[in-house]
Simulated scan of single mutants.
Amino acid sequence: MRLFTAAIPPPEVADHLEAALASVPGMTYRAPRAAWHITLGYYGEEDPAGRIPWVRSRLTSVARPRVALAKLGNFGETLLMRVSTPDKRLADLAAVLRWDDKHPEYIPHLTVGRGPLVDLPYAGPEWTVDEVVLLGAEKRHDYTVVDRIGLPA
């Protein structure tokens, strides 16, 4: 099972984004809303039992970041919402969850689908990330929550 840690937007944030995406022309594929997340750390193929204690031990004193989704971007044909952060706490959170230096530059985003890049003026509501989930995946966009870890207040 492929494992990664993520922050999942709350329902009101997802509702706001879903309404904005309804007007995006030319999307050849839309990622299922249930799969929307901001990846914090990626661990590859692993047994969850070995990763859970490591993740939990890393999150004992991490501050809760405030984030918002803004500006549609792309990586090739992949469409993504960039994450706007008013402080550096999201990068700090991702840094403590990093397993290797394979991707040294952390670019927070939420994948929304595939298609040509279009101009989507968007500013989503801000929210506080108050938990991290450890997700397992057998195939793309088929995620299982393996563990939920609340962040300290």
Rank of each mutant, 00 (worst) to 15 (best):
T39C: 02
A70N: 08
P9L: 01
R30P: 11
V55Y: 03
T60D: 01
A63C: 04
K88A: 09
A34W: 10
E131Q: 13
S61D: 15
P9I: 01
H37F: 11
Y106P: 08
R98P: 00
L134W: 07
V146S: 08
R148F: 06
H141N: 15
G50H: 08
H109P: 05
R64H: 11
E105V: 15
L117T: 10
G41C: 06
R98W: 01
R66E: 09
G150N: 13
V55E: 00
S57G: 10
W99K: 07
R114L: 13
E126L: 05
Y43C: 11
E77H: 13
P11N: 03
V145R: 13
L97I: 03
A35W: 02
Y122K: 04
V112D: 02
L72C: 11
E45R: 12
W54H: 07
L90Q: 02
W127H: 10
R56F: 00
P25C: 13
K88D: 10
M81Y: 06
D100K: 11
S23G: 12
L97F: 00
L110F: 04
F4M: 04
V55Q: 02
P152V: 15
G26M: 12
A153T: 12
P116F: 00
K71G: 13
A94M: 09
I149C: 08
T85N: 06
P9W: 04
P53I: 05
A7W: 13
L135M: 15
D92K: 06
T39R: 02
D87T: 14
G76Y: 12
P11C: 05
F75L: 14
I149N: 02
P10Y: 05
Y122E: 09
P108Q: 05
P121Y: 03
T144S: 11
R98A: 13
E126G: 09
G41L: 03
A31T: 14
F4T: 01
A91Y: 03
G41Y: 02
V96G: 02
A31S: 14
I38W: 01
A20R: 14
T111H: 02
D147H: 12
H16P: 04
T128K: 05
P65C: 04
L134P: 08
D87Y: 03
W36E: 06
R2L: 05
A94I: 06
Y29T: 14
M27E: 01
P108A: 07
T39G: 04
A22W: 09
I149L: 02
A153Q: 14
E77P: 14
A14C: 00
K139W: 03
A49W: 10
H141A: 15
P86C: 07
A14D: 12
L117A: 09
L134A: 07
L90D: 06
G150A: 15
D147M: 06
E12R: 08
R114T: 12
G115F: 07
D119G: 08
G76H: 08
A49E: 13
L69G: 05
V145K: 13
T128E: 10
P25R: 14
R89A: 14
V96M: 05
K139Y: 10
A19P: 10
R30L: 15
V55M: 07
A35V: 07
M81D: 05
R64V: 04
L93P: 03
Y42N: 00
S23E: 15
P125Y: 04
L21G: 11
L69T: 14
W99D: 14
P86M: 04
A137K: 10
A91F: 10
F4S: 06
P104W: 11
G73H: 08
